[in-house]
């Protein structure tokens, strides 16, 4: 095994061995820009795991959080090709472990009166909320790190998911990493 010094140096200077990587792309807030991004990913054979887009506090720009699959292409090539798009203003890599990542899920789950207490208890533990309650179903929401949302979604499988929507990941760099 390498010493602790080696390990931390590796963590800082190498792209970690994660399959998915989060990029924050600042783009001009103009019509057609999202199509340009999506078309670039498709024609270069880059796979997207998730994509979230919304205007920033400056309405000239939108912020796109895109999670890319590094099995499809090297990160460097993805970033360089994105940077060639004239409407792309800035690209920032967010290293997993150095960023706060959140995702929102809203979900309708089959849950009759006999199972509701158990479900709500699990929801509380995960930090979610009940949005509405029907005769045989409940609508829930959960905001959290994508891994927690994944786990909760899996847990809901035993109840029966009727309908589900996730937003895709959004992220900000940790405060001490922000520039």
């Amino acid at each position: 095994m390498s010493g602790p010094g080696d390990a931390s140096a590796a963590a800082q200077h190498h792209v970690p061995d994660y399959r998915y990587h989060t990029l924050v792309v600042t783009v001009e807030n103009k019509s057609g820009v999202l199509a340009r991004l999506a078309a670039l990913f498709s024609r270069r054979g880059f796979n997207i795991e998730s994509l979230a887009v919304a205007p920033t506090d400056d309405d000239r720009f939108s912020r796109v959080t895109v999670v890319v699959d590094l099995e499809s292409a090297p990160l460097e090539q993805i970033i360089k090709q994105l940077d060639k798009l004239v409407n792309v203003v800035n690209i920032r890599e967010l290293h997993p472990g150095h960023a706060v990542e959140r995702e929102l899920m809203i979900v309708t789950v089959a849950a009759g009166p006999d199972r509701r207490d158990e479900l709500v208890e699990q929801l509380d533990r995960a930090g979610g909320k009940v949005l509405s309650v029907g005769a045989d179903a409940m609508m829930l929401s959960l905001v959290g790190p994508p891994s927690r949302v994944d786990e909760f979604e899996e847990l809901l499988g035993q109840y029966g998911i009727i309908e589900l929507q996730r937003t895709g990941r959004v992220a900000l760099a940790n405060l001490d990493e922000a520039d």
Partner: peptide, 8 residues
Amino acid sequence: IDAAELGK
């Protein structure tokens, strides 16, 4: 002059 060609 095209960064994307370097290492492509």
